[in-house]
Amino acid sequence: MPISIILGLHLTTFHPNHFLMAHYLEYISVKGYAKIISGNQMTGIKESIDKPITLKGVKVIAVSGPVKTINGQPRILLNQISSSIIETSTNKNGIFKFSLKPGFYTFFLVDGDRAYLNSFDGNGFFKGTKLTQPINDLLLLDDQNAIY
């Protein structure tokens, strides 16, 4: 039901449902999983492949925009990231969730004062994600101790 409100000398009609829909559409849901893998991950050596282990209570960050690597390394100090950072943590099942505005984001696992992502775009940047619709299966791997 529309509500009439007088703002200054203008009569404005406020539709509560339209406002709620517009606010809801500004943000997109991102759901992901954080896991750790280690050991020999080479295909063909099935007996040595370790299964991924869920990461519980780990900080995950979403950085607005692309992030340049430092000499192609999978780690970067948090204070070297100049874009805005949104953070969350994984739950007991290794699941993390964000509610973000549409745009381009780079997602990292955080270990102390460093962000970790062993995925690159081939142009000197960490691999990012263009967010235009909900994502339910973003996988972040801590594979620092894995052999490929």
Rank of each mutant, 00 (worst) to 15 (best):
F96A: 01
P16A: 10
N40F: 13
I37N: 00
Q144P: 08
G103E: 05
M1K: 12
K56A: 06
T13R: 12
N91S: 05
T90A: 00
K68G: 01
I135N: 02
F108Y: 09
L109K: 00
F19W: 10
L9S: 13
V67I: 09
N17K: 11
K35L: 14
H15F: 15
E47L: 13
L78M: 04
K127C: 10
P66N: 09
M21H: 14
V67R: 00
E47M: 11
F14T: 10
N91Y: 06
N71G: 08
K101C: 09
I28A: 03
L11C: 08
F120R: 03
L138P: 00
T132D: 00
K56C: 05
I61E: 00
A115V: 04
A22E: 08
T132K: 12
F126H: 02
S82D: 11
T54A: 07
R114I: 13
M42H: 14
E26S: 10
I3A: 12
K92T: 11
I37M: 10
R114A: 03
L100R: 02
A115H: 01
M1R: 14
H18R: 11
G39Q: 05
K35I: 14
N71Q: 08
D111T: 11
G32H: 03
K59R: 11
K101M: 11
N40T: 08
S82Q: 14
L138I: 07
F19V: 15
D50S: 13
A62M: 02
D143A: 05
T43D: 14
Q133L: 14
A22W: 06
R114F: 13
Q73F: 12
G103W: 06
M42R: 11
